[in-house]
Amino acid sequence: MPRDEFQQSLADLRSEVLAMSDLVADRLDRALTALETVDEATAQVVIGGDDEIDRRYLELESTCIQLLAQQQPVAGDLRFVAASFKILTDLERVGDLAVNLAQYTLEADRKRFAEVDLSAIGDLATALLDDAMTAYRTDDAALCHEVAARDDELDSLCQRASQRVVRDLIEREVADGDSWAVERLLDDVSRLLLTIRDLERVGDHAVNVAARSLYMIESDPTLV
């Protein structure tokens, strides 16, 4: 493959990775909206759309493998293809987390623990992912470091939300001595804690994207 054609293939790969990121971000946003508004129809759309994300992931994974195997890129081009390959995996997993959130919408009772601000946690998680993909798109090393730093804020929000849920469980229900009520509450507590955990994992994947982008830009994935 001539050099100009190869460079165009790399540009096309970046565009396709960004397009997949847009799709995943849309599904994550829909899942969060469904969870907040108890919109079961939107939740079903997110769940039903997971196959499209998986299909795009496999297609782009194949593209990366072909570029690595057939063209044997070196230096910066090699780092770019390798980073893109890894970023695709993070995006696919965020898509899976969006499906989890949609499924929680169908199962959880959001009237209970309504004071837990999932929207704030979700907004921060999606912002981190968006910034990480912006860093990938623009080769912005400084933004990679910013994403990693702001993930501490997301971790803190998730920790406080989890602690509040557990505290309320003890204060509001266990003291009543109604074993059946406690069992029902534990189901909702488990789902809510899983929701918080999955939002935290979105942030973790955003940090992964930032680290892989930093490796692509500076040949060093260390985010400090």
Rank of each mutant, 00 (worst) to 15 (best):
D4W: 02
F6C: 04
Q7E: 13
L10T: 07
L13C: 08
L13N: 08
V17P: 12
L23Y: 04
D26V: 02
D29A: 15
A34N: 00
E40P: 01
A41Q: 10
T42V: 13
T42S: 10
I47N: 04
I47H: 08
G48S: 11
D50F: 00
D54F: 04
R55N: 02
Y57T: 00
E61R: 10
T63V: 10
I65N: 06
Q66E: 14
L67W: 06
A69L: 08
Q70Y: 05
Q72D: 08
D77V: 12
R79Q: 01
A83V: 03
S84L: 11
F85M: 14
K86V: 05
L88V: 07
L91Q: 01
L97D: 11
N100Y: 14
Q103P: 00
A108M: 09
E115G: 09
S119K: 13
A120M: 03
A120R: 15
G122L: 06
D123R: 12
D123H: 06
L128V: 10
T134Q: 13
T134F: 00
T138V: 07
A141D: 12
A142P: 06
C144Y: 07
C144I: 09
A148L: 05
D151Y: 03
E153H: 09
S162H: 08
V166Y: 03
E171Q: 10
D176W: 00
W180P: 03
L186P: 02
L186F: 12
L193D: 01
T195P: 00
I196Y: 04
D198E: 10
D198C: 02
L199V: 08
L199H: 02
R201I: 04
D204F: 11
H205Y: 13
A210G: 11
S213Y: 09
Y215M: 05
I217E: 04
D220N: 15
P221E: 02
